Amino acid sequence: MPKEQGRKMIAQNKKARHDYHIEDTYEAGLVLMGTEVKSLRQGRASLVDGFVDIDGHEAWLHGVHIPEYSNGTWTNHSARRKRKLLLHREEIDKIERRVSEKGLTVVPLSLYFNDGRAKVEIALAKGKKSWDKRNAIAERTAQREIQVEVGRRMKGMRD
């Protein structure tokens, strides 16, 4: 069987980009059971409630929902168990230091297969205030209206 090539997206946490200012991102591997990999290959996962915790110089992914594999037997995994992240020691130390001193949090942004291996993109993030969210929405709306108007003018349409 040929080896998988490229990047296959499984799940994204779009709400994280809305709720947080993303400061730095990292790619981490995941320690998974066989039934978890099979469930992910079916494209089923949710990152909505996920977060990363550093415990004893190890990074753990909590709250990510990978549903049980439908054809699994008694060896099936539990859907919301904590999963170990595979990061270099320097990366873990840097994340731990920044979380403790600046009050940042670590959230998962996306879950994907990269050349056949399950990876998760995590980010150091700072929570947005409600007025920040409103400003971001207003800016997006204004940019969209500008693009629509530019497109209309390029096509020769008037108001």
Results as ranks from 00 to 15, higher is better:
K119P: 09
G56T: 11
E36H: 06
T105F: 07
D49V: 01
I92H: 08
V48E: 09
F51L: 11
R152M: 05
E23M: 11
E149F: 03
L61E: 11
N76W: 00
G29V: 14
R97A: 11
R83Y: 06
A125W: 12
G116F: 00
M9Q: 15
A118K: 00
H88G: 08
M9V: 09
D24T: 15
A142S: 12
T75R: 00
D93G: 07
R152K: 06
R158D: 09
V52A: 15
V64D: 04
L109A: 11
D93V: 14
N13Q: 11
K38E: 09
L86G: 05
D24Y: 08
K38T: 14
D115C: 07
Y20Q: 03
E36F: 00
E27R: 13
N135K: 15
R41D: 02
R80A: 04
E90G: 09
G29C: 05
E91P: 00
E58Y: 09
G56R: 13
S39M: 07
H57Q: 14
W74K: 15
V107Q: 02
K126H: 14
R41G: 11
T35W: 07
L86K: 11
T73E: 03
L47R: 04
S100N: 12
G50N: 08
K8P: 04
L87Q: 03
L47C: 04
K94M: 01
A59M: 08
S70L: 15
V52G: 07
G103N: 04
R97D: 13
E149W: 00
I137S: 13
E58M: 09
G29N: 03
D53T: 07
S110K: 15
H77I: 12
A136Q: 07
L85K: 01
E4G: 08
Q5W: 05
V52W: 14
L124I: 03
E149C: 02
Q42D: 08
M33W: 11
K102F: 10
W131K: 05
R140T: 12
N76F: 00
I10L: 09
E149H: 01
I10T: 12
A28H: 03
S39Y: 01
H18G: 06
K15C: 01
T35H: 10
S78G: 10
G63D: 12
R97H: 12
K38A: 13
K3I: 03
G29I: 13
S130G: 02
D49T: 06
I146Q: 08
G34C: 10
T25H: 08
A11L: 03
R153T: 03
K3V: 11
K84R: 13
K82F: 10
E121R: 04
L109T: 13
G116H: 08
H57D: 15
L61N: 07
R7G: 02
L87A: 06
R158Q: 03
K119W: 00
F113C: 13
R98K: 06
H77K: 10
D93H: 05
A28D: 07
Y26D: 02
L124H: 01
L61A: 12
K94S: 02
